[in-house]
Amino acid sequence: MIARAAAITLVLLINHLTLEAQTSSTRPHDSTWVAPAGATAKSNPLATRADAAAGGRKLFAQRCASCHRDDGRGSEKAPDLTQPDVQMQSDGALFWKISSGNTRRGMPTFSFLPEPQRWQLVMHLRELGPIDARGRKTAANNQCTAHNSQHFALRRGWPPEAHSRFKRQRRAGLHWRARPAFALRASARQQHSRATMNTLVARPAGLEPATAGLEAQWHVSEAPFVSAGCQATHASYPRGSSWQIQRPEASRQSIRLLYEGFCRRRRGRTEAGMSRFPELFLPKSDERLDSCRSTRRDVRGESSDGSEEREHGHVC
């Protein structure tokens, strides 16, 4: 009797260990699974609720960890969620994927969860990410350090003319669209009274719409104060205001693009902001500061169109 019990136990253990061994490999991402553009542009309505992330952690453990593992690093059943190609996707894209599922690849539909819970899951996904050799989250990850009340207080009273300024920047965006590396498009999501929702979206040019998940999106005035992939929030903002930047696979150039845009918009304040919050940018803040200054020169130098040049001169 005892021998049979031991034998069964052994078989089950071997089975379990076999599964463990099998799961050491991670399922690759489905590159054809891309959120539609409309879904990608959605922002997280819970972004201002710091307490919601804890719920997301619990939900992840309950709903997702059985396939993606507790740390999100994936298994043979499900891909690694810490990788940049996941982390660089917008909140809206992740929300859509959680909601929609991918039944052909075994990803269940989670639309049975209430929407807020799905957004909580997105918040937790942002907490996952690659760790560098020193145990810090890398720039491609979600290092939400842009949380400083003094700074945000400065931004809170965005002037009414911000909207028109934004339009000017849209025009300026044509300049970027003309550049070979990127396409830039801008959208005003809400009235200037809630200008915190104005966003710019960029994606690597020359790629098919199927790669829309690579888009970078940021708030016009705040984005430069947010590290890559980060979603920053503050309680003093209206509920629903959020902004984020993603670093497309195409890499640092997109960050530079963002950075340049900011430099053009907020001369003076830009540099003050940078000196006060160097950690919010890329790891070598001094280098970025220099980059900003040089970028402005570059922009003027590169522009072959006279009116474009005047536009930049005016804005900066």
């Binding site: 804890a54 952690r57 619990k58 209430p114 819970q117």
Partner: peptide
């Protein structure tokens, strides 16, 4: 409930 609490 529509929002998950952080506690078990």
């Amino acid at each position: 409930g529509t929002i998950a609490s952080g506690r078990e």
